[in-house]
Computed example of a mutant assay.
Amino acid sequence: MKLILLLAPAVIAGAIRYPVEGPIPVADDDYADQLIGEGKAETAELETDSEDLDAMTVPELKQLAAAEEIDLGEATKKAEILTKIREARIARADRPQE
């Protein structure tokens, strides 16, 4: 899976996605590379260490959670969102690689 920033609208996983959405995860690495090669996207990099998470605003954390496909459930407060993101990352790290 690659995280990309769209530079133009593109169909991803059957839905039209737009540049204003921020970083978008793409499960098909070849398709992500194709979009990048066509100049429709660029590789996205997100800061992921704890200090950077703590400095992020609630909207930034929600965007990060969406990019990492993390379900925040009913979490709305910063502390709750941080907990959900950290728990999801730990769970992801504990899963065997495919």
Rank of each mutant, 00 (worst) to 15 (best):
R17K: 08
D71I: 05
K2R: 14
A67E: 11
S50P: 00
L7C: 03
P23E: 04
P96H: 02
Q97V: 00
P9I: 14
L5Y: 08
R17G: 01
K62M: 14
M1S: 10
I85M: 12
A67L: 12
E68W: 14
D71Q: 09
I16W: 04
A44E: 01
E21T: 03
A93G: 11
G14M: 05
K78H: 08
Q63K: 14
T57D: 10
L64D: 08
G14T: 07
L7H: 09
D33H: 11
I90E: 13
L46V: 06
E74D: 15
E80F: 06
G37H: 09
A93W: 09
D49P: 00
V26P: 05
Q34P: 01
E45H: 01
I12W: 00
I4W: 05
S50H: 01
M1F: 02
A32W: 10
Q63G: 15
V58C: 08
A67S: 15
V26T: 02
P59E: 12
I24Q: 04
I36S: 07
V58R: 09
E38K: 14
I70T: 13
V20Y: 10
A13P: 00
P25R: 12
E60L: 08
G39V: 04
L53C: 09
M56R: 15
P96F: 06
L72F: 03
G73V: 12
D71L: 10
V20I: 12
K78N: 09
A8L: 14
T48G: 05
I90D: 10
V11Y: 07
M56F: 14
R95H: 04
P9K: 13
K78Y: 11
E42C: 03
E87P: 05
A88N: 14
K77F: 09
I90N: 08
K40R: 15
K84T: 06
D28F: 08
D54L: 14
D49W: 03
P9A: 15
P9R: 13
E51D: 05
V58I: 15
R86G: 10
P23Q: 03
E98T: 09
